[in-house]
């Protein structure tokens, strides 16, 4: 399937970024279906990350600037075990609302991974190696989903990504409901 490449600026994080850091529990109260109220999730996405670890290697870079609900960054590059902790689907949802299109990490906590795919929020790519020390926040990236590979235009480097494997069909359909409709499991 021919899919449009994902392009944009990198936002780099360390390891074990848990869902309380992605969206602190005090913010889980807003509606995800109300078009205005849901923007608050974009405002507070990644607001639980300690400031010095937000936007590496420099740090002290918020994903979303103060008074804004959308980020200038499009692709999160993180170290191991991204999304560990709670099952809150508000985590992948808030990243999508902030404008994140994909995540690249060597490994994910499974519930976050599943929620990202089944809810069709964004694509969690597994990198072969930990790229959080090779890529800097602000680097211009491109994901070629057919190889699949991550191209760093700022540094002229290309990194291998693992194929999506058994979740590829759900990712390409756009989520579990679209997938189930394509396969006759849920009425159209």
């Amino acid at each position: 399937m021919k899919t449009k490449p994902i392009t944009g600026k990198a936002f780099v994080l360390g390891k074990n970024i848990d869902t309380d850091q992605i969206i602190p529990a005090a913010h889980l109260v807003y509606s995800l279906s109300d078009p205005e109220e849901r923007k608050l999730y974009g405002k507070y996405a990644l607001s639980g990350v300690p400031a010095e670890e937000s936007g590496l290697p420099q740090g002290n870079i918020p994903l979303t600037r103060e008074d804004e609900t959308e980020s200038e960054f499009s692709i999160i590059v993180a170290s191991d075990n991204f999304g560990c902790g709670s099952s809150r689907e508000h985590a992948p949802a808030c990243l999508e609302i902030a404008g994140i299109k994909a995540i690249v990490s060597p490994s994910y906590a499974r519930i976050f991974y599943r929620n990202s795919v089944d809810g069709g929020f964004l694509t969690p790519y597994e990198s072969e190696e930990d790229l959080s020390k090779k890529i800097r926040t602000g680097d211009e990236l491109e994901i070629d989903s057919e190889v699949p590979a991550l191209i760093n235009h700022t540094r002229g480097e290309t990194y291998k990504l693992n194929p999506l494997g058994s979740v590829a069909d759900i990712v390409h359909a756009g989520g579990i409901f679209a997938y189930a409709r394509e396969n006759g499991m849920v009425p159209r």
Partner: peptide, 14 residues
């Protein structure tokens, strides 16, 4: 095991 909102909605219907 724990799941997200979309998976829960899927179960509610199916």
């Amino acid at each position: 095991t724990g799941i997200g909102n979309t998976d829960a909605a899927f179960i509610m219907g199916t």
